[in-house]
Computed example of a mutant assay.
Amino acid sequence: MLAEPRSFCAGVRRAIDIVEVALERFGAPIYVRKQIVHNEHVVSDLEARGVRFVDSADMVPPGEVCVLSAHGVSPEVRQGAEERGLTVIDATCPLVAKVHQESRRFAEDGRTILLVGHAEHEEVEGTFGEAPERTLVVSTVEDVHALDLPRDAPVAFLTQTTLALDETEEIIEAMRERFDDLLGPGSDDICYASQNRQNAVKAIAARTDLVLVVGSENSSNSVRMVEVARTAGAAAHLVPGPEHFQESWLVGVESVGVSAGASAPEVLVDGLLRRLADLGYGRVEVERTATENVVFQLPALLKGTG
């Protein structure tokens, strides 16, 4: 049972396109701060073509091209890169950029921002950096209850875009019960692609014994998909690549569901399907729960190239 939609979302496709077009225009090496997207296969492929991934823009030689990853960065990182004379190309997903904009707006209004997410995730680090003196990161309902803020404090909430929708709603509901003056974004921060992939995983989990999600271990949206499948009642595993699949998972399994996180390329899904076919699971049925036709434009610096 193959979930649809799956694999690359518009933001990931745009980020990879940005790096590839930058390679064509400027030539190797191209430097990228952090992983352009959270997938080892994508990173290795780009490295082989002359892309150098660095942990900090400070590691990029002055005057070189520096691409900022899809997860977004703080204003401090952006300013530091520009001060060093780097040619900065921003591959931040437009949906993440929307959250940054909301953070600035709430901070200007004097509100304390409750950012729902995982503090160690790059996206949260970038959003936090928009208003660090006014932002508190919360990950659980318990974190909300433990906040040292009065009930009438003017607060606002934002969320990491790749979280599980059900879990996030519980945390937001706890905020509504905890605070009298709570504002949220005009529309959900959790991106359409994360929601669509979670919905598709729920659908296949209801019809299969085992769900396999292709994605890297540091891919938040892929990890959430595994959790969603397990919550829906299916056994589920994260599969970084076909070589990580374990035949023992198939013991007693009649039907298998397959999907992939938004940063996982389709070629890895194809490889996993071939392995399953070799083991007797060769008939594939597609479960389509949504159709995606979103396309994000390249930055102005790269338009008209590639």
Rank of each mutant, 00 (worst) to 15 (best):
Ala3Ile: 14
Pro5Val: 02
Arg6Tyr: 05
Val12Gly: 07
Arg13Met: 13
Arg14Lys: 05
Asp17Cys: 06
Val19Lys: 15
Glu20Ser: 12
Phe26Ser: 10
Ile30Arg: 10
Tyr31Thr: 08
Tyr31Lys: 08
Arg33Asn: 15
Lys34Asn: 14
Ile36Pro: 05
Val42Met: 04
Val43Asp: 05
Val43Met: 03
Val43Phe: 05
Ala48Ile: 11
Arg52Gly: 11
Arg52Thr: 15
Val54Cys: 11
Ser56Asp: 09
Ser56Ala: 07
Pro62Lys: 12
Glu64Asn: 13
Val65Ser: 07
Val65His: 06
Val67His: 09
Leu68Cys: 09
Pro75Glu: 02
Gln79Leu: 07
Glu83Lys: 15
Thr87Phe: 15
Asp90Gly: 06
Ala91Lys: 08
Thr92Ile: 11
Pro94Asp: 05
Leu95Ser: 11
Val99Pro: 02
Val99Met: 12
Gln101Val: 11
Ser103His: 09
Arg104Ser: 09
Arg104Glu: 11
Phe106Cys: 14
Gly110Val: 14
Gly110Glu: 15
Arg111Ile: 05
Ile113Pro: 03
Leu115Gly: 05
Leu115Arg: 00
Leu115Tyr: 06
His118Leu: 13
His121Asn: 04
His121Glu: 04
Glu123Tyr: 06
Thr127Cys: 03
Glu130Gly: 08
Ala131Val: 12
Pro132Glu: 06
Glu133Pro: 05
Val137Cys: 09
Val138Glu: 09
Ser139Pro: 08
Thr140Ala: 11
Val141Cys: 01
Val141His: 00
Asp143Tyr: 05
Ala146Asn: 13
Leu147Asp: 13
Leu149Lys: 02
Arg151Leu: 07
Arg151Trp: 08
Ala153Gly: 03
Ala153Ile: 02
Pro154Lys: 00
Thr159Val: 02
Gln160Phe: 00
Ala164Tyr: 05
Glu170Gln: 15
Ile171Ala: 01
Glu173Val: 05
Phe179Lys: 06
Phe179Glu: 10
Asp180Cys: 13
Asp188Thr: 14
Ile190Val: 04
Ile190Ala: 00
Ser194Gln: 06
Ser194Leu: 07
Asn196Ile: 03
Arg197Gln: 06
Gln198Met: 05
Asn199Cys: 11
Ala200Lys: 03
Ala203Asn: 08
Asp209Glu: 15
Leu210Gln: 09
Val211His: 04
Leu212Pro: 00
Val213Asp: 10
Gly215Met: 02
Asn221Lys: 10
Ser222Trp: 07
Met225Tyr: 00
Val226Lys: 10
Glu227Tyr: 08
Ala229Glu: 10
Gly233Ala: 12
Ala236Arg: 05
Ala236Gln: 08
Val239Ile: 14
Pro240Gly: 14
Pro240Val: 14
Gly241Pro: 12
Gly241Val: 04
Gln246Val: 13
Leu250Ile: 03
Val253Asp: 03
Gly257Leu: 12
Val258His: 10
Ser259Gly: 14
Ser263Cys: 12
Leu268Pro: 04
Leu268Ile: 08
Val269Tyr: 02
Leu272Ser: 10
Arg274Ile: 09
Arg275Tyr: 02
Leu276Asn: 06
Leu276Lys: 06
Ala277Asn: 01
Ala277Glu: 00
Asp278Glu: 07
Leu279Val: 00
Leu279Ala: 00
Tyr281Val: 01
Tyr281Leu: 00
Glu285Gly: 01
Arg288Val: 00
Ala290Asn: 06
Ala290Ile: 00
Ala290Leu: 05
Ala290Gly: 01
Thr291Met: 13
Glu292Met: 01
Asn293Val: 10
Phe296Thr: 02
Ala300Asn: 13
Leu302Ser: 07
Thr305Val: 13
